Computed example of a mutant assay.
Amino acid sequence: MNDGLVTRRSTRDVGETISALRAEAERVGAAVAAVVDHAAAARQAGLSMPDTQVIIFGNPQAGTPPMQARPEIAIDLPLRLMVRDDGQPGALVTWQDPGYLAQRYGLSEDQSAPLNAPAKIASVVDGH
């Protein structure tokens, strides 16, 4: 089943993985718009969940052309990486499959190239 997601294991914990992803995103010229800490929000609501954070990043020079081709893709931009603790060593890093998005929006290879950024950024913490 292709659920449109790609997941890889980081050898680092959630916090260290988020820090490494943020540094790599900025190194390649992406602006980090936000880091959403779902577990912290759950704690504030009196609930608990495993450490789960989402880093949201983008680069208008890369993201604008796909939106010009298919304005609907703006619902999936800026790009993001989810990092979560699954109880095993390290953390899981998940992002949207660029091929899935390209097919969903009918983008050409050139138009969909910027969607490969999460995989490239995540490679800095890839544990396999």
Rank of each mutant, 00 (worst) to 15 (best):
R9C: 04
L101E: 01
E72N: 00
L47M: 14
V32C: 05
V32T: 08
K120L: 14
D86C: 01
L5Q: 15
G87P: 03
W95N: 09
R104L: 14
L77C: 02
W95M: 04
Q53A: 14
P66K: 03
A122P: 08
T7R: 12
G127P: 10
L92C: 06
N2H: 12
D97Y: 06
A69D: 05
G58M: 01
E24D: 11
R104M: 11
W95T: 02
T7C: 10
Q111V: 08
A40S: 15
M1S: 13
L81T: 06
Q103Y: 10
S108P: 01
A34S: 13
G87L: 01
V93H: 02
L101P: 00
A119H: 04
L92D: 09
S108V: 06
Q88N: 05
T94Y: 02
A25H: 09
P114V: 01
G15W: 10
L81M: 14
G58I: 02
I121Y: 07
Q61S: 14
D37T: 07
Y100D: 05
A113H: 07
V28A: 06
Q96N: 13
A42S: 08
G90N: 00
A23Y: 08
P60E: 04
L107W: 02
D51L: 00
Y100M: 10
P114A: 05
R84Y: 15
P65G: 04
A20W: 09
S108A: 02
T52V: 14
R80Y: 10
G87C: 00
H128M: 11
D110R: 14
A31Q: 10
I56K: 08
I121N: 09
G63H: 06
D51W: 02
A41Q: 15
L21H: 02
Q44Y: 01
K120A: 15
A91D: 00
G63F: 06
G4I: 05
V83F: 05
G127L: 11
V36N: 12
M82N: 13
G106I: 02
A34L: 14
D85A: 08
L21D: 03
K120E: 15
A119K: 03
V32N: 03
Q68G: 07
Q61Y: 11
D3M: 13
A31W: 09
R9Q: 13
D126I: 07
E26I: 00
L107T: 03
S19M: 13
E109H: 10
P118Y: 00
E72Y: 00
L21G: 04
L79T: 04
S10W: 07
A31I: 09
I18Q: 04
A20E: 06
T7M: 11
L115K: 01
G63L: 10
G106R: 08
R43S: 11
G15D: 15
T64Y: 08
E26D: 01
